[in-house]
Amino acid sequence: MNDILRISVPLTVWIAAFSAVYGLQGIVCSDHWGAAGLGLSAARAALVAAWLVAIAIQLGLLLVLQTPRYASPSRWVRWVSVALGIVALISTVWTLLPVVMTSVCI
């Protein structure tokens, strides 16, 4: 089971972060955000911060998966888990890049 977790955790964290940022985008564009007295620049800041946190978590996971304590005893599983860690990191950067590329709420 641990090997299955090693393989599946980074990408699972990606989908969680991706959905969370999408949800956050929904919130900052809803009436609730304005009602709380927050504007568009705060919205952008929150989204970018969430993106950076997601990247940091992925970097952390990638490092942890290579430490003697958490790496798999099987060389093959270690390779796959690190490869998928890199995939998850790239996915986090790539799919959430729009937070710095597009307008926030139109």
């Binding site: 790539w94 729009p98 590329m101 597009t102 307008s103 139109i106």
Partner: peptide, 18 residues
């Protein structure tokens, strides 16, 4: 794909009702 994605988003931005 990276090139296409960026271009697609760029065009999308231009079409918005500003």
């Amino acid at each position: 794909l990276a090139a296409l994605t960026v271009w697609g988003i760029y065009i999308g931005e231009r079409l918005l009702p500003r």
